[in-house]
């Protein structure tokens, strides 16, 4: 933007950094609180570095509630959902870009249309449907209804359309079929887009609250967000305990984000492009 005075750059940096602090500090405070003893919790002034640093909240978490089970449930369900969504989306995107059949556009529009309808509109009948299928309060109920990911189909269709066709044409000449073409050429060539969809899928499933809240009753089947919220209503003012749980549930997702930051940011940018 042309020349900018040193003072202007500094002002900008300071504003950004101050704002950054507002966004980072609550996380720091979460970890700090989780390491505070119950007696020190409400003491003023609040201590940024707890004195003493105390792991009792984590100990209680592991002994008094099935936190390990919740973590495993969340990991298992999220991985299963991610795998199924990526695979089904990629295959559908392949059909929409590499196969010709009647009604292709109409079916694609159907996918797009469901993207516009909020999940909230179907949550009651979906619950009733799963009740008849006997999938309430089960892992199946958390995984199976999530199998289709219209947003993933949309993103991967865009990605597949952008691939150069020469390699694929050569493969077809050599006698490769569509299945081989899909697995050995199209998928490997679209790694960044696949990664973006996978990250979105994982985050969506890991953070999902409304659906598990509605269908899960048994504490042993709860995912982390649901477990955490049940924790907070059981131990109302045990903030160190509640935030120890929050810390445990944030760690994996922050790790995924830092590791895959590029793909996350790219995905949001891509979804913004159609606007």
């Amino acid at each position: 933007m042309g020349t900018e005075s040193k003072a202007a750059v500094w002002t900008r940096t300071i504003v950004i950094a101050a704002g950054g602090l507002v966004f980072l500090f609550p996380f720091v405070w979460m970890v700090s609180t989780s390491l505070t003893t119950a007696g020190e919790l409400f003491k003023l002034p609040p201590q940024l570095i707890p004195n003493p640093v105390d792991g009792a909240a984590y100990e209680r978490l592991f002994t008094e509630v099935p936190i390990v089970r919740w973590v495993l449930n969340s990991v298992g369900v999220s991985l299963a959902v991610t795998f199924l969504q990526v695979l089904s989306s990629a295959m559908a995107a392949y059909a929409f870009t590499r196969l010709t059949f009647r009604g292709r556009n109409a079916i694609f529009v159907l996918f797009l249309a469901t993207l516009m309808v909020p999940f909230q509109v179907m949550v009651v009948p979906l619950f009733i449907e799963l009740r008849y299928m006997g999938m309430l309060d089960s892992y199946w109920g958390l995984i199976i209804p999530e199998m289709a990911m219209p947003f993933g189909v949309f993103l991967l269709r865009q990605a597949f359309l952008g691939l150069p066709r020469e390699l694929e044409e050569a493969a077809f000449m050599d006698g490769a079929g569509h299945i081989r073409n899909f697995f050995t050429l199209v998928l490997p060539l679209s790694k960044p887009a696949i990664a973006t969809v996978a990250v979105f899928s994982f985050m969506g499933s890991w953070n999902n609250f409304l659906w598990p809240l509605i269908i899960i009753n048994s504490p042993d089947l709860m995912t982390l967000p649901l477990g955490l919220s049940s924790l907070s209503s059981r131990f109302v003012t045990d903030w160190n305990l509640v935030l120890a749980g929050a810390t445990i549930s944030v760690l994996p997702i922050v790790a995924v984000f830092l590791f895959a930051q590029r793909y996350v940011l790219q995905g949001v940018a891509m979804s913004g492009l159609k606007g």
Partner: peptide, 20 residues
């Protein structure tokens, strides 16, 4: 990245954190 961190954090965690 910092500004984006709350976006990847689950709503339950954000709500509990701000409640505190």
């Amino acid at each position: 990245g910092i500004y984006f961190l709350p976006v990847v954090t689950s709503w339950v965690v954000v709500a509990l954190l701000w409640k505190w």
